[in-house]
Design a protein around this nucleic acid. Structure first.
Lengths: 184, 184
DNA sequence: ATCGGAAGCGGAGTCCGTTTCCAGATTAAC
DNA sequence: GTTAATCTGGAAACGGACTCCGCTTCCGAT
């Protein structure tokens, strides 16, 4: 009748260690090898794979953490109708700059258009973003036809600019944000 | 004293075959394996690697072809000061849509910021692009501070949007092009 | 026309990162 | 304390890019 037994304490500890090590290493170089992550976490590769079916899943789990952090920021600072979307995008740019692996997570997440089982944090983020958009539009500082999809599009671009280092992402935002101003 | 002797006829034939096969296969799927390309070209893997030191070099050679084609288009249709830059970006979007591998070439090319030994076609393309920008600016349809780097930035983004299929690249351009209009 | 050897060829084999597998160690439940 | 499920480490399998080298083909000198 009882459903499951409590998960083992050592297992949870190991999972946390893996996430911690991965977060630190992947922020620096998005191509760190799994055995290296395992080594730093003080576990075997097998343990990493027990917790995360493959590399992508691990990166995704870390991305979920970031998404939650970003959602919290957005809830606090981007809902006042004073160009919250602009502030949101700038913040995303900053976060991306400090986490090499986040970009690849964003790009694969985007690739799997819509249908995929989106994570909780990402869903939450989408909700907050929609509110920020609505607030800006009500205040007349954002074009009326701007959608969540549009902002996602820009986040994807921002991500690719930061990842490839192909130019100044702030300059990119400067240009892109002009495109989001209300039509005359 | 004489520098090099003429390359063997069969070698040139094989090189051409590899390029042809690669162009066809990579346009469809940017992750085709080299042995497959070799098989379709009717040569061994070794021959592919003789002509192109690595996968990237092969993709780059194909990209150079595309760049030359795009430069030709731009020379004919984008220098009249009538929003040539807009037409240029739209054309690049179309080409990217039909060639999956071009995106990765563009992204690695951009990653190697400036210093790298740029290909001839790319250099040529940059020249034409600069002319198109100047023409549009003279006609007052493009913001005065727009640089070649800005357009590169947008091309990089365009590329990532097309590659990841994360949204409608036409919509992206619509937004981005607003940002390129002259400041009021 | 023929022949020596440089240039080119193919594909088996190396390398290197990811992922799987499982015998043994560890833990929760009783 | 016993039991049985859970978790562990790391050796080995796998997959794909790239290298190496003995054999073949072409070229141009004779």
């Amino acid at each position: 009748m009882s459903t499951e037994r409590k998960p083992r304490a050592d297992a949870e500890r190991n999972r946390a260690r893996v996430l911690e090590a991965a977060r630190a290493l992947l922020a620096e170089h998005d191509d760190v090898q799994l055995p290296e992550i395992a080594r730093v976490a003080g576990v075997g590769v097998g343990t990493v794979y027990r917790n995360f079916p493959d590399r992508r899943a691990l990166v995704e789990a870390l991305a979920e953490q970031r998404f939650a952090e970003i959602a919290e920021y957005a809830r606090k600072r981007c809902l006042d109708g004073k160009s919250g979307v602009k502030r949101y995008l700038r913040h995303v740019g900053e976060v991306l700059s400090g986490d090499r692996a986040l970009s690849s997570a964003i790009e694969t997440a985007r690739g799997s258009a819509g249908s995929e089982p989106r994570g909780d944090a990402l869903a939450e983020l989408e909700t907050v973003l929609a509110q920020a958009i609505a607030a800006d539009q009500a205040a007349g500082v954002l074009r009326a036809d701007c959608t969540v999809g549009d902002v996602y599009l820009l986040v994807g671009c921002l991500s690719s600019v930061v990842r490839t280092g192909s130019g100044d992402w702030r300059r990119f935002l400067e240009l892109a944000l002009e495109g989001l101003l209300p039509r005359d």
